[in-house]
Design a protein around this nucleic acid. Sequence first.
DNA 1: AAGGGTCTCAACCGCCATAAC
DNA 2: CGTTATGGCGGTTGAGACCCT
Length: 227
Amino acid sequence: MGRAPCCDKANVKRGPWSPEEDAALRSYIQNHGSGGNWIALPKKAGLKRCGKSCRLRWLNYLRPDIKHGCFTKEEDDMIFTLYSKIGSRWSVIASKLPGRTDNDVKNYWNTKLKKRMMEAQAALSDNHSAPSSQPLVQRVHSSAFINCVSIRPTDQTESQSSINGSLGESLDLRVPRQNPNYLELDFGSIADLFYSSSYEETIGTMWADASEEIKLGEPSQSVTYLY
DNA sequence: AAGGGTCTCAACCGCCATAAC
DNA sequence: CGTTATGGCGGTTGAGACCCT
């Protein structure tokens, strides 16, 4: 019992595709389409491959509308934004990025963006050990996602910060202060932070700026964190 | 130059949803 | 309505490229 395999695994080729195989698959699909049956396609196309493998090769690599090459900052922003909202639904995220496949987006996230995110978190967490004369920059947990930042001014012991936006969106920080009445910072987006030559430097700037009133933009949504 | 570690990304695996029978 | 076949998806793997010492 149990599910039958989609192909005879002992008699199909596996591993990297050769240029000849690519040409055969491309030629067949361009002339006949997939025929709505990937399982039957390899035999018709003269390929010793599993149908699933053919489908994957076509969708992820051979399709004419595939965009190869580096991701742009706009694409990064889109991935951050969507990931913060829907998580690892790569096919949905990829559908918003013309020419990108879910596999592309997933690989890009796992190898690049996730690392940047982790490094940024670590850098922000490190600021817990900041000198007491400086405002304390710390990461707080967001129910939607991480990478929200709060700032505790040194001139008050109890404070409440409102954090507006999420990854990929404009990120505003607003901290009530005694004088001036509030402090508001806008870092553009988390992606901007990642793109800076060194986000430690950016955070350093945050610290320096935190003693002054900075007001940029209107928050589109507001989430309040207490600490 | 060698070799060990790390990174990248194409490809595979296995599960789930759905269509077809 | 149950079973089977297939498509689609996210997670994972591993070969080769690249980097560092």
